[in-house]
Amino acid sequence: MPVKFEVNGKPVSVDVEPRLTLADCLRHHLRLTGTHVGCEHGVCGACTVLVDGDAVRSCLMLAVQAEGAKVVTVEGLSNDDDLTPLQKSFRKHHALQCGFCTPGFITTAHALLTEEPDCDADRVREVLSGNICRCTGYIAIVEAVLDARSAYKKTTP
């Protein structure tokens, strides 16, 4: 079944089985392997991507449901030259170890900070509680997200 959507700013067109998840489509058809699959039942959040700006579990969404949508993955939130302020903050606070859950945390935190650059620690914890990290114990992740808020604040004229 053909489906067209936009990934990281570029239009893509793929022919997929209706049952294919968006996660598998991104990973195996479009070879965007930064999006990770940790549970395939919507609990762990490793596969979180942005769909029209919202943080979405790509294992719970079918690729065909992405028709016409703007999808952004961790690759789309990165550039070659340097880490982004959010990524730098993760590195500074040692908010990752094995790195497997990290793309899901980056996408989730990016969506949160874009919408709510003034969020407090409780709000960060509430939102991040949809993503599981087994290495860090979360303390450093929360610190990293809080520390990155300034980069998302709109400069007032």
């Binding site: 965007l32 392997t33 930064g34 999006t35 990770h36 993955t73 961790v74 690759e75 990165s78 880490l83 990524q87 993760f90 590195r91 500074k92 040692h94 990752l96 094995c98 790195g99 497997f100 990290t102 793309p103 980056i106």
Partner: peptide, 15 residues
């Protein structure tokens, strides 16, 4: 700061 982070944070780790 870890050198590993540069790939993990950008979704460039290879699992």
């Amino acid at each position: 700061e870890r050198r590993e982070d540069l790939r993990f944070l950008r979704g460039r780790g290879i699992y």
